[in-house]
């Protein structure tokens, strides 16, 4: 088992380096020199040169042979790649083009509102879909099973934008049950968050219930369930003790995989309801062509995801003896 854990730990830096390379490739190599775009049409050659120096676009991509000839060996690594690498590893992403704020501070400020939205949504969605899936597992093969599956497929087929638009239109605008737009920190913000949380839960139910139903039905055909029934365990006990415990492994995986999305928030929900979280920032950054913000966000969220994955895999190795063999 320790063999597995150590190997898994050693692989993690490789993945982080991979993510770094992807952001470098996208936002430095493919993105290229934007100095003329940033400077505007009537900019002088000096302004453009200044911008190029500020963003490091005047340097070579990987190694600086010209610089080495002029300034000695340490200038060899004065390149865009080394700058990107050092900046990213030290979490120094520079400043946002639009608001001139430090990007690391922006990310820190955005995480709170995003979590306020996604944490209740996530807990609500998980508990609702698990209970419905358990009910389906209990009623499998009956008409109720069919009806619930049909509802799930119908829900999955509706695009998430439609859920948001229709929910906001009918529940907030037409019926006036909730405020249409806005955000306040603290408990007074709860009235603004109720509707987006509700919409998020309903929009996610279709695919989640269907996934957990498959998990439960896979387990319910297992031998240990038949054994439990055969030795006279009550149905309720079989479902809630034997079945749930074993079905939890895929459930935990999907929970951990969802964690980075908690930080990112639900992009579209934040945009529609004016919640100043990371998703909202991301959409604004796209509009402002603020590539540094997008690059920083991609890196941070991916690193969170990598460590979340690492944590689950190690937990599995500790809990499930079968995994240590691989």
């Amino acid at each position: 088992m320790w063999n597995y854990v150590v190997r898994r730990l050693l692989y993690t830096p490789l993945i982080v380096i991979g993510v770094l390379l992807v952001t470098f490739l996208l936002f430095v190599v493919v993105q290229g020199d934007l100095s003329t775009e940033i400077a505007g049409r009537s900019a002088s050659a000096e302004t453009i040169a200044e911008i190029r120096a500020e963003y490091g676009w005047d340097k070579p991509l990987f190694i600086n042979i010209e610089g080495m000839k002029q300034h000695g060996i340490e200038a060899l690594f004065d390149s865009q790649f080394v700058k990107h690498f050092v900046d990213t590893v030290t979490f120094d992403f520079g400043r946002s083009r639009a608001s001139k704020q430090r990007i690391s501070e922006l990310l820190w400020d955005g995480a709170g509102p995003s979590l306020c939205l996604t944490l209740p949504m996530f807990v609500g969605l998980l508990s609702t879909s698990l209970s419905i899936a358990l009910i389906i597992a209990f009623a499998r093969g009956t008409i109720w099973d069919t009806i619930l599956v049909v509802i799930c497929v119908l829900g999955m087929s509706l695009p998430s934008l439609a859920f948001i638009l229709l929910g906001q239109y009918f529940l907030a605008y037409k019926l006036g049950w909730f405020p249409i737009f806005g955000y306040e920190p603290g408990w007074s913000g709860a009235k603004f968050l109720t509707l987006p949380v509700l919409i998020g839960i309903i929009a996610g139910l279709g695919s989640d219930v269907r996934f957990y139903r498959t998990v439960m039905l896979d387990e319910i055909r297992a031998d240990y369930i038949r054994t439990a029934y055969a030795k006279g365990v009550s149905t309720r006990r079989v479902l809630f003790v034997h079945l749930l415990k074993n079905a939890l492994i895929p459930v935990i995986t999907s929970v951990v995989l969802a964690i980075p999305f908690l930080f990112l928030g639900s992009l579209l929900l934040e945009r529609f309801f004016g919640i100043p979280g990371l998703g909202y920032m991301m959409i604004e950054a796209i509009g402002n062509r603020d590539f540094k913000v997008i690059s920083a966000m991609t890196f941070i969220i991916s690193v969170l995801f990598v460590f979340g994955n690492l944590a689950t895999d190690i937990c599995y190795a500790l809990v499930d003896p079968r995994i240590s063999l691989h």
Partner: peptide, 14 residues
């Protein structure tokens, strides 16, 4: 493994 460590929608948007 690297690509799947970047959340899907984020990657597509980037």
């Amino acid at each position: 493994s690297t690509l799947s460590s970047i959340p899907g929608l984020l990657l597509v948007m980037a």
